[in-house]
Amino acid sequence: MISVLTNNWSTLLTGFGNTLLSSVIALVFSLVIGSAFAIMETVPSKVARVIAHTYIEIFRNIPLLVITMFFYVVIPQYVAPMTGFAAGTVGLTLYTSSFIAETVRAGIQAVDIGQMEGARSNGMTYWQAMRYIILPQAFRLVIPPLGNQFINLIKNSSVLAFVAGFDLMYQGDALASATFDTFNTYLVVGVFYLVLTLPLSYYMRHLEKKLV
């Protein structure tokens, strides 16, 4: 197990870096997209709600791998070239944003409805009330579930392995296929993932307890 690590340190570290990079990019974009759709789901306009709802349901109910493969093999033929890393990150973003939208929407709705009315009767517009009163409280509520979404995102980023995205899983798997030392290689890869996800998950549990 140690020799797998020492012999392939730079390969695994590159993979680890790509996994982290893809996860962070996907997190930032899915936070923005997800929050936008979450707000759309709560506005009075019915058209906006239907659009948001359709988006969320589509990407929630199709496997991430299918979305990713679609971007890797279909989009380049008809639209624009896309590397495996890009296709995987886009797939992750779309998939995760639908879950984040649901989380943030639940957060917005958990904030007392009376507050919106109060803010508006104090002369704020709908968007001002949303921006200054509702959203800050909603986000505080949803930090632990968002943290869990980030953990899922890191784990799910292993789909990059299917599309030659040079992530941790891809590098580990290429290594295992070349050396046949599957057992130790996968163990090492597992430890690399745990280094990221396990502390995050304990920290989120700690936060959850603090918030309750």
Binding site: Y72, V73, P76, Q77, P81, T83, A164
Partner: peptide, 8 residues
């Protein structure tokens, strides 16, 4: 082959 066709 799919990847080749897709210009990867």
């Amino acid at each position: 082959f799919t990847a080749l066709k897709s210009g990867q």
